[in-house]
Design a protein around this nucleic acid. Structure first.
Length: 330
DNA sequence: AATGACGGCAACCGCGTCTCC
DNA sequence: CGGAGACGCGGTTGCCGTCAT
């Protein structure tokens, strides 16, 4: 495992003394509240308490669980790290595409975006955006909120990302009947195009039932991404056409065999056994001292011919290419 | 080998909203 | 209706690992 920079490494866990405290001062209990990295013991207490009593009422939960933490801190720790269905590791190409798509629509509504990426937290998506996307905006010497950058993202990066997804799929899978069916359905209720969803479906990932499809169909207008990947097309017919276009049921995509996916951490829909196991996952959860590190997925996720998927979109060649495109639009 | 810079991520903070009394 | 506490969200900070020199 070992996500780079994580505070949950065993080294950090052992270093309980580095955790600072803050004085509450005025409460009747007048306890020293801990801050900073969580220890194994604290995680264990929190997990066990929630397993027995459920979550919510975080302030009292913190007290009753014997944690010298604020309720807020407990909530954050649970939601962003300990929750069984938290998915960790590299953001996949499909997830990157979805993040770009959703962010172009909703802006920094991280929690809203996270709702559509099962297992991902708003914090993780926010971090991804800040560390990756903003970095590349910086490289292009433009503001991440500028129209030019958004257009670059929409008309260049996203189509290119889709190409990469499709290329990865071609390289790693044979076309399944389900994929063909998906491709035949055209756009869907999310406004994402066939290319988007079909590609994602082929990998057995994304668009799970619990993503709140009704929600999406209401909130998504037209897709900004068109099959032809050209600004002209997307700015005219495509976006308005896909608005309310009768669509296929995304459940069609839920049952792609996981074996199609090169990433061992991939999950399927909630009806799928593999995903269920992934949700439960936690050989290490209740045995933190021994196996805690095993809870994290393989971070060396390889797609697209062995290139780290997390940076697939952003290699040097692309940056150069995008810079040319970007400059020519100036 | 030492060290400084940088990147990535967990955790914290402030504030707005919601819920309950 | 209004106040208090709980909750949730987005922005920011700070730590740790990695990389470059």
């Amino acid at each position: 495992m070992e996500v780079k920079g994580t505070r949950s490494s065993s080294a950090n866990y052992s270093n309980t003394s580095s955790c600072s405290t803050l004085q509450t001062g005025s409460t009747d209990e007048d306890i020293d509240l801990r801050r900073g990295p969580w220890t194994v013991e604290e995680d264990f207490k929190l997990i066990n308490y929630i397993a027995n009593h459920g979550e919510g009422r975080w302030n009292s939960l913190a007290r009753y669980a014997g944690l010298k933490r604020t309720g807020k801190s407990c909530r954050l720790r649970w939601l962003n790290y300990l929750r069984p269905d938290v998915r960790r590791g590299n953001i996949t190409l499909e997830e990157q595409l979805l993040i770009l798509e959703l962010h172009s629509r909703w802006g920094n509504r991280w929690s809203k975006i996270a709702q559509h990426l099962p297992g991902r937290t708003d914090n993780e998506i926010k971090n991804y955006w800040r560390t990756r996307v903003q970095k590349h905006a910086k490289q292009l010497k433009c503001d991440v909120n500028s129209k030019q950058f958004k257009d670059t993202m929409r008309y260049l990066w996203m189509p290119r990302l889709m190409e990469r997804i499709q290329a990865a799929n071609k390289a790693t899978t044979t076309t399944t009947a389900t994929t063909a069916a998906a491709a035949a359905t055209g756009s869907n209720s999310t406004g994402l195009t066939t290319a988007t969803v079909g590609a994602a479906a082929t990998t057995g990932h994304m668009m799970m039932p619990h993503m709140g499809l009704n929600n999406i169909s209401n909130e998504f207008g037209g897709s900004h991404v068109t099959p032809s990947y050209t600004p002209d097309n997307s700015s005219t017919g495509a976006s308005s056409d896909s608005f309310g276009t009768p669509v296929s049921d995304l459940t069609d995509y839920y049952t792609i065999p996981v074996s199609n996916n090169p990433n061992p951490d991939y999950f399927l829909g909630v009806n799928n056994q593999v995903y269920s196991e992934c949700l439960i996952s936690p050989s290490g959860y209740f045995n933190p001292g021994i196996e805690f590190q095993e809870m994290e997925p393989n971070n060396n996720q390889l797609l697209d011919g062995g290139v780290d998927a997390s940076d697939n979109l952003w290699n040097v060649e692309d940056i150069w290419f995008l810079q040319q495109q970007f400059n020519s639009n100036m």
